[in-house]
């Protein structure tokens, strides 16, 4: 269809016409699009379970469609909790800290590790910093117990040998906000750095060459070249993280704290609460909880994107 003469046409006219490139790009995007349809969009009819009193009457589809509608009844339990305030405070509070620390620290350390003189050392550090990522939260919980257990833990043994009293860590809520933040950073730091490291290493080095010729110091280069070039990635990571502000890592807040009663006020988040409430509940209530998280997440992510677009249209995700 398209020929060389068409390509020489003015760009303005081209913008609205379907070109050969568009067909080719569609073809390229097709496998992934099919994947999305199969694994993401087809199951979405499941959302209606949140509004139904789910009953078994045969196959799954007939279960879903024959179950009676109950409106928002499945949502009631979410808003009748006595501790709603504590739970929302914990969820959003921890997430704000996680978002900030999850951007600032990896960026900082990615830049720092790039400035190390020895490549070999930097590789060794990176590999070591990755290890925690592979310990599942259940294992982390076991390791935590090895450190913090009252009578067998490493920390208390050290305290006792230094002459102080042992601490019953799992019943001492004052330490846990720090500990949870620490563990979250500890587990994700190595992983979080990868994105920034990859961006830094793939930056066009002509900028740096020019800067060196102009006599810029390594700090000036970092400040005026590296950081601005990372902006796009940082903003994107920020928007993505904000969309998850109503979700927390169940393993961190439930398994690592050993579901300790004393730590309720500092460790209960939306996911933990929903898990506990749903032990006796129905699939409809589980769907309702997930749906509320989705809607809130969608709202925050779109708001964040909108704000970013106002400030700097190029950085916005959509």
């Amino acid at each position: 269809m398209s020929s060389k003469t068409e390509q020489q046409d003015k760009r303005k006219r081209l913008r609205n016409r379907w070109r050969k490139q568009d067909t080719e790009l569609t073809l390229l995007a097709l496998p992934t699009t099919i994947w999305y349809i199969l694994f993401c969009f087809l199951p979405m009819f499941g959302i209606i379970i949140a509004f139904k009193n789910f009953r078994i009457s045969g196959g799954f589809l007939s279960n879903v469609f024959n179950s009676p509608w109950v409106g928002f009844k499945n949502f009631e339990f979410l808003f009748k909790s006595n501790d709603a305030w504590i739970i929302i405070r914990n969820t959003i509070g921890y997430n704000i800290i996680f978002i900030v620390s999850g951007i600032v620290l990896p960026v900082l350390f990615a830049i720092m590790i790039g400035l190390l003189h020895s490549r070999k050392a930097s590789k060794v550090y990176q590999t070591m910093m990755f290890l925690p990522y592979f310990l599942s939260w259940v294992v982390v919980s076991a390791v935590g117990w090895a450190f913090l257990s009252f009578d067998k833990g490493i920390v208390n043994q050290m305290l006792v040998s230094m002459g102080s009293d042992p601490v019953n860590w799992y019943m001492a809520p004052e330490y846990w906000p720090y500990l949870l933040v620490f563990l979250n950073i500890w587990k994700g730091l190595g992983y979080g750095m990868v994105i920034y490291l990859a961006t830094i290493t793939s930056l066009d080095s002509t900028y740096y060459e020019a800067a060196v010729i102009d006599g810029a110091s390594i700090w000036q280069q970092t400040r005026f070249i590296t950081l601005p070039m990372l902006k796009l990635v940082i903003v994107m990571m920020f928007i993505l993280a904000v969309g998850r502000i109503f979700y927390t890592d169940f393993g961190l807040f439930y398994q690592v704290t050993r579901d300790s009663n004393s730590l309720f006020n500092v460790s209960t988040t939306i996911d933990v609460m929903v898990y506990k409430q749903l032990k006796t509940a129905t699939v409809g209530m589980a769907s309702a909880a997930a749906f509320v998280q989705s809607v809130l997440g969608c709202a925050t992510i779109l708001t964040a994107n909108w704000i970013v677009r106002k400030i700097d249209p190029d950085s916005a995700m959509m």
Binding site: F39, P43, F45, G46, I47, I49, L240, G243, S287, C298
Partner: peptide
Amino acid sequence: VVFIPMVFNGGLVSSYFIN
């Protein structure tokens, strides 16, 4: 197409059924 699944999903039960 890419964005919607990031925030919405059909839940475990229906994904299991489709898969």
